[in-house]
């Protein structure tokens, strides 16, 4: 035993005092009142520290209570049939991702016709033209100002060739072009790095759609052939729509959510 543990040594040698248990019990019972008095009295930095400590304790306590409740609930619902039945030959192949097939082609078509999508991000921040475009001065005296440079990330298709500089009104910088997006399948809870096919709609303006500007809330079409989704007709689904969920100009990458 180390030398400095003299209290433990004393307890070991002589035992505790006879009223030790009572004292402990009373101390514990009094503790709440004492804590309360302290909490009412304290102010300033010490109050801040105390509140922080109490908050953490409360969170911990609530978590534990929830855990206990979940345990009890589990015991109650033991005989509930789980969802997602699979035949015997697939039972030992858990862990393989099972993409849900398009639920209903008719529904899908109707949605497309209405041009309305139940998208995860229904509203977007408006972006003014002067934020989107930078005016480029041209001409020998730099007096003309009809040329614009897009300052946001864009998608440019494979077959695109730039117009001659004289006629090129919008410049889409090479450094801000993207060809792939991180697309999350909401039901599989898995992300895939998929090639972009095109920009379906930029909610800001039709001009941005035309230019292929990728901002938060833009609906893009991605190539999902590697996911192995099929239609009810048994054909592989090639393109599906996804909505951009981050600000690509801030992040340097494109994150999107698949619209199922």
């Amino acid at each position: 035993m180390p030398q400095n543990e003299y209290i433990e040594e004393a307890i070991k040698k002589h035992g505790r005092r006879f009223d030790h248990e009572t004292r402990e019990r009373k101390k514990a019972a009094r503790k709440f009142h004492k804590d309360s008095q302290y909490a009412q009295k304290v102010h300033g930095w010490k109050a801040k520290m105390l509140n922080q400590k109490r908050r953490k304790e409360k969170i911990e306590m609530k978590k534990t209570i929830k855990l206990h409740e979940a345990k009890q609930a589990d015991q109650k619902t033991d005989d509930v049939v789980p969802d997602g039945a699979v035949p015997a030959y697939l039972l030992d192949r858990e862990g393989q991702q099972r993409a849900k097939v398009l639920s209903n082609m008719v529904k899908q078509k109707r949605k497309e016709k209405a041009g309305k999508w139940a998208v995860p991000l229904p509203k977007v921040r408006g972006i003014a033209e002067d934020e989107m475009f930078k005016v480029i001065k041209t001409g020998k005296r730099q007096a003309k100002a009809w040329k614009r440079m897009v300052t946001k990330p864009t998608f440019v298709g494979d077959g695109f060739t730039r117009k001659p500089p004289k006629y090129e009104r919008f410049i889409r910088p090479m450094a801000l072009r993207y060809k792939k997006a991180n697309v999350t399948h909401p039901e599989l809870k898995a992300s895939f790095y998929l090639p972009i096919i095109g920009v379906k709609k930029n909610p800001q303006s039709p001009l941005y759609t035309q230019l292929g500007v990728l901002t938060k809330g833009t609906v893009i079409e991605v190539n999902v052939s590697e996911l192995g989704l099929v239609t009810t007709g048994g054909k592989v689904v090639w393109g599906k729509y996804a909505q951009i969920t981050n600000n690509p100009e801030n992040d340097g990458c494109i994150n999107a959510l698949l619209l199922v």
Partner: peptide, 8 residues
């Protein structure tokens, strides 16, 4: 064709 999902 006709089933809307995997045929088991």
């Amino acid at each position: 064709p006709g089933h809307a999902d995997e045929v088991f």
